[in-house]
């Protein structure tokens, strides 16, 4: 694990001048992930917020080789790059050691890019895939995705007089990837940078496919003040909505256990997309959301061999 001093001394792989919104935690996620990879890295990214804001022609924030192909194929694309690396290294045409990181938002990963990711993970490429999960299609203007939390207000599942936001609970993508029996998988948060840094280092040091799912709070999409992003991540973790854990050697392990598990409302109350949950008539929805968080947390504790 590197100290902040060491991380700051490294050549940064992403330059400022990108056009992410003020307070964008997805952008911070990219910085923290890339800082944790000191050697040569080639990256890909699915169409989405960070792809757009970092590569508006003729400008690029990328100081390392980067490819954006399309929305649904970041994993397949970087798997092709990795295959080229294996072939060209074998032939002696490439001599340097290079790591490969594919990025995608929740839309490009949980939804439209799931098949491409599943294929790349199953084939066993030596690569890391990082999902920056901001829990909706933010780039197109806040539409629900399969990662969007229950009852959240989005443009395609808005809160109205009759219907109150998203009907479904979020898909558990991390567990879907774990079911591929990958070399490494984890959930992380930039609000816990040491934990994230360690996970990226581990993912890149292990040979084979690795996956890290990072919860990346989005100020305009979640509707919280721009300075609150780090706090939003912390609360998501401390309410056990977003547990920090990893999967290695076929075993799950909690990497952080909140001293006190906070009620989900501690997280939702700061966010405009959940405002309705804090009105008396929608109390039952908040209760349902809480029950689901509790159920998943209990199940995870069991899977991690932790006392309930």
């Amino acid at each position: 694990m590197a100290s902040l001093k060491e991380l700051a001394a490294r050549e940064q792989k992403l330059a400022p001048g990108h056009r992410a919104c003020a307070g964008c935690i997805p952008a911070l996620t990219f910085h923290q992930v890339l800082r944790s990879a000191p050697g040569h890295v080639v990256a890909s990214c699915a169409t989405g917020c960070i792809e757009v804001v970092t590569t508006i022609y003729p400008y690029t924030a990328w100081k390392i080789p980067f490819i954006h192909n399309a929305f649904e194929n970041s994993a397949a694309t970087i798997s092709g790059v990795e295959a080229a690396y294996q072939a060209l290294k074998r032939k002696g045409k490439v001599t340097k050691d290079i790591k490969f990181i594919g990025f995608g938002g929740d839309g490009g990963t949980y939804d439209i890019g799931l098949q491409s990711l599943s294929g790349a993970m199953e084939r066993g490429h030596d690569m890391l895939y990082v999902c920056y999960d901001n829990e909706a299609y933010m780039n197109t203007g806040i539409q629900r995705s399969s990662a969007t939390p229950f009852a959240a207000d989005t443009k395609t599942a808005p809160v109205g007089k009759v219907r109150k936001g998203k009907k479904q609970y979020p898909k558990n993508l991390t567990e879907i990837i774990i079911a591929h029996d990958v070399a490494y998988a984890a959930q992380a948060s930039p609000s816990f940078w040491r934990d994230l840094n360690k996970k990226v280092e581990k993912a890149l040091s292990i040979e084979g496919p690795a996956f890290i799912n990072v919860l990346a709070p989005c100020p305009p999409g979640w509707r919280f003040p721009t300075e609150m992003g780090i706090e939003m991540g912390k609360l998501a973790v401390d309410t056990c909505f977003w547990p920090l854990y990893e999967f290695e050697n076929h075993k799950r392990k909690l990497t952080y256990k909140p001293k006190e598990k906070l009620p989900l409302s501690e997280w939702t109350k700061h966010q405009g997309r959940f405002r309705h949950l804090h009105q008396e008539e929608n109390k039952h929805l908040l209760e349902l959301a809480q029950q689901e968080v509790d159920r998943r947390w209990k199940e995870l504790l069991f899977l991690c061999g932790e006392p309930a």
């Binding site: 080639v42 490819i67 399309a70 194929n73 694309t77 790059v81 295959a83 080229a84 072939a87 060209l88």
Partner: peptide
Amino acid sequence: SATVGAAAAG
């Protein structure tokens, strides 16, 4: 997609 990635990788 993989072919594009590989070709872009030289």
